[in-house]
């Protein structure tokens, strides 16, 4: 059984069908790229999976259990974490706090234990801290050390992207959705991140779905490529298969030529 199963997923935005009867399976440990022209419904797909936008029709199942209609926080608790296209951090919170927030669903101490500073609270707090720092250490030296205490807004753009990924990782997801993780990064940084994504999968075995525009990244990273156009899946296969697919070429070149 697939880790994530999507059947007939549909979403309308005031007459525009952003996602149209989409079927998609994600197996554990897979790295999948979702590509498609602008407005193809990629980000909407992420919003639907994570519960940030209500589903109009269709099913989304994690481990065979329906997750449609759950709150985003519940879905994160079940193991689907995401990042955002236009990096959305908690800008005034420190780097460490940003990541610690993601441990919220894995911890349970309430207000009373916090006020009384019970041993269980201290233990959990220390653990949260450690796990957050572990997640940040994933990016080597970039986000740890003195940077832990700086507010997220003072980070460079690339570091913000990294912080967002670290925050998602810290929630111990089984499925990680990355929305254009390399946008705004230079080639060197992009390459580094690609390597890290591979490493992350190899180390933890989580499935990773990423939206990506940079075809070199897509080629280098993905075991499977899914192409969306007008909210529909028009191709699904290895990079080579998809790259040769006529509909894909048409979808991209037909409109891309005028855009780019």
């Amino acid at each position: 059984m697939a880790l994530l199963g999507i059947r007939g997923l549909t979403k309308d935005f005031g007459g525009i069908r952003a996602v149209n009867g989409l079927d998609l399976d994600v197996d554990a440990g897979q790295i999948i790229s979702v590509i498609g022209p602008n407005g193809a419904g990629k980000t909407t797909l992420f919003n639907l999976i994570t519960g940030m936008a209500p589903v109009d029709a269709g099913e989304i199942a994690l481990d065979g259990h329906d997750i449609v209609g759950l709150r985003p926080s519940q879905i994160l608790g079940l193991g689907i974490a995401r990042t955002f296209q236009n990096v959305r951090l908690f800008p005034e919170m420190t780097v460490r706090e940003n990541v610690m927030v993601a441990r919220h669903c894995r911890t349970r101490s309430g207000m009373l234990t916090a006020i009384l500073r019970l041993p269980s609270f201290r233990r959990e707090e220390a653990q949260t801290r450690r796990r957050a720092e572990d997640a940040l250490a994933f990016f080597g030296a970039r986000l740890v050390g003195w940077r832990l205490e700086t507010p997220a807004r003072s980070l460079s753009y690339a570091n913000r992207r990294r912080l967002e990924i670290a925050r998602a990782i810290a929630s111990d997801p089984r499925l990680l959705l990355l929305d254009e993780p390399t946008a705004g990064m230079n080639p060197q940084e992009t390459q580094e991140l690609t390597g890290l994504i591979h490493k992350l999968r190899d180390r933890t075995g989580i499935a990773i779905v990423l939206i990506e525009h940079d075809m070199r990244v897509v080629k280098g990273i993905s075991e499977r490529v899914v192409v969306l156009d007008y909210g529909q899946k028009i191709a699904d296969g290895t990079y080579r298969e998809v790259a040769g697919n006529e509909r894909v070429i048409e979808a991209y070149l037909g409109r891309r030529a005028t855009q780019a």
Partner: peptide, 13 residues
């Protein structure tokens, strides 16, 4: 739609 037969992990009760 909301037939949740899920037994979520963590404190998600």
């Amino acid at each position: 739609m909301a037939q949740n037969s899920l037994t979520p992990k963590g404190p998600l009760a």
